[in-house]
């Protein structure tokens, strides 16, 4: 009896009205029982986002947007933010060297990345001299306006 058979059995049992089932089959012993609190099975619960007032207090979830949470740059580090929505690339081409790496020194105006939007390549430049501290934005992923791409020290 493979795993998928068990799942199959489990689904059958789930939708049946019987409350308990025991099974011995080619060496496997299976015992299924429904919990007391309610007879029916709960429909697949879709995680509905409650449009409630305390939603205001919650951190804003951007599930699809790049996973990097927007960390506020501390005083010394300077955040290089996306000037528009698009896809962020760390290098000029797929098999080329990234413009910058962590720890690398950059000068004001150096190109540190590209954002592609509406088939146009928009260069992102360092706002001032500094050393690349971190690169939270993921290469080849969508970035939002104002999202931190790179932090400089």
């Amino acid at each position: 009896m493979e795993l998928k058979d068990i799942y199959e059995l489990f689904d059958r049992f789930e939708s049946s009205s019987c409350r308990k089932m025991e099974l011995d089959m080619n060496g496997a012993h299976l015992c299924l029982e429904k919990g007391e609190y309610n007879g029916g099975t709960v429909a697949t619960s879709v995680p509905v986002r409650p449009a409630s007032m305390e939603a205001a207090a919650k951190e804003i979830q951007n599930v699809a947007a790049p996973a990097a949470t927007v960390t506020e740059a501390s005083e010394e580090t300077i955040a290089v933010r996306a000037p528009l929505v698009g896809t962020f690339y760390r290098a000029a081409g797929p098999n080329e060297e990234p413009f910058v790496k962590e720890g690398q020194k950059v000068h004001k105006g150096d190109v540190v990345g590209i954002i592609e939007a509406m088939k146009l390549m928009n260069e992102v430049t360092a706002p001032q001299d500094g050393i690349v501290d971190s690169i939270p934005a993921e290469d080849g992923k969508m970035v939002e306006y104002n999202q931190i791409l790179i932090t400089l020290k």
Binding site: A55, A56, K58, I60, V85, Y145
Partner: peptide, 16 residues
């Protein structure tokens, strides 16, 4: 920090 942003499945900031 607005209700649509908090209640939509996804929210994307597109500008100032």
């Amino acid at each position: 920090k607005s209700l649509p942003v908090m209640t939509a499945n996804y929210a994307v900031c597109i500008g100032p």
